[in-house]
């Protein structure tokens, strides 16, 4: 429980740090939200009035404290641009991004496990070489480009999946998410494969695999029942780190595939200087990452009886 308290404290600090950083940069940027919203044609009085209404002409410390106080009540303020509550806007966008990220992880793991299994069955063999080729390609191919490529070679010719947009019906939504999720997954899988491969091979060389081999257990069973459960911890820690990358990947593909999620919103909000929304988005993502990394910790504990009983 001590570890949990420490993690929570860290998470709170992280999130406060983020708000402070984003806030500070807004101030330092010297941008004028009223002007950004109303445009260059508006009169200075109108801009000032709007700035007053938005509260951005108040002393900085007061603004920040107001923001944090609102946060404690679950209130992220109102969007500068549309005037709607930030929480409502984000609640509309978050499910798209969340589904996209979850689906991306599922697909990446579906790629990672069989590929790595074939690779470690015969290290240096054909499957290993092919998987290494995939790792190299997946690392260097930019995800926005891959997304476009998938639109070009799958979405447009076959029509199986839409090239963009997000319908209202659940099955259509799922189809709309497939190609974007594959795009993000291809970016995630290479590091997963590298991590799992080296952990798996290390486990295969360990005495607790040699011993059952001496009892006549075959290679496939040694790989899956004996070595694999001991190779998952590095992968689980990696997944926690990858949550952040996946968020970046989601921002990119949401723009390529025109998905109405947090990422596409972030770019639009940023161009509107809609600080409360940008701030809220950053915070939400920080929160998600903290959540994912705690989940990864929990999973690691579940996988290893030594950690379980150390509690």
């Amino acid at each position: 429980m001590k570890g949990f308290a420490k993690k929570t404290g860290q998470a709170v600090l992280l999130m406060l740090g983020c708000t402070l950083l984003v806030f500070a940069i807004q101030v330092l940027s010297g941008r004028d939200p009223g002007r950004a919203i109303l445009g260059t044609q508006a009169t200075q009085t109108a801009v000032d009035a709007l700035n007053h209404r938005l509260g951005v002409d108040q002393p900085l410390l007061g603004q920040y404290l107001d923001f944090v106080a609102g946060l404690a009540r679950g209130d992220l303020g109102l969007s500068f641009y549309s005037g709607a509550p930030v929480t409502e806007i984000l609640a509309g966008r978050a499910p798209v991004t969340a589904s996209l990220i979850v689906l991306s992880f599922v697909i990446s793991l579906v790629i990672t496990f069989p590929t790595t299994l074939l690779a470690v069955r015969n290290p240096g063999g054909p499957a290993d070489v092919i998987s290494r080729g995939f790792v190299l390609a997946g690392t260097v191919i930019p995800s926005f480009w891959l997304g476009i490529l998938l639109i070009l070679v799958i979405a447009l010719p076959t029509g199986l999946f839409p090239a963009g947009g997000y319908p209202d019906d659940p099955s259509g939504q799922l189809r709309a998410l497939v190609l974007p999720a594959i795009t993000v997954a291809v970016g995630l899988a290479p590091v997963q494969i590298r991590t799992l491969r080296s952990a798996w091979l290390r486990a295969m060389r360990s005495p607790y695999v040699e011993a059952p081999r001496s009892r006549g257990v075959g290679t496939t069973r040694l790989l899956i029942s004996h070595a694999l459960p001991n190779s998952l911890n590095p992968l689980v820690s990696l997944l926690a780190v990858q949550a952040g990358w996946a968020a970046f990947g989601a921002v990119i593909v949401e723009n390529t595939f025109r998905l109405p999620g947090i990422g596409q919103g972030l770019i639009v909000d940023a161009s509107h200087s809609d600080f409360p929304l940008v701030n809220g988005t950053t915070l939400l993502l920080a929160f998600v990452v903290v959540l994912v990394s705690s989940a990864a910790d929990g999973l690691a504990r579940l996988l290893d009886p030594r950690l379980r009983s150390a509690q």
Binding site: P207, A211, P229, N230, D304, P305
Partner: peptide, 21 residues
């Protein structure tokens, strides 16, 4: 003969038994 006629025991029993099983 592995698992039939020949058996083997190892130097470090704590490492030769699977920690998660």
């Amino acid at each position: 003969a592995r698992g039939h006629e020949i058996g083997m025991i190892f130097q470090e029993p704590m490492r030769a038994l699977n920690p998660v099983r």
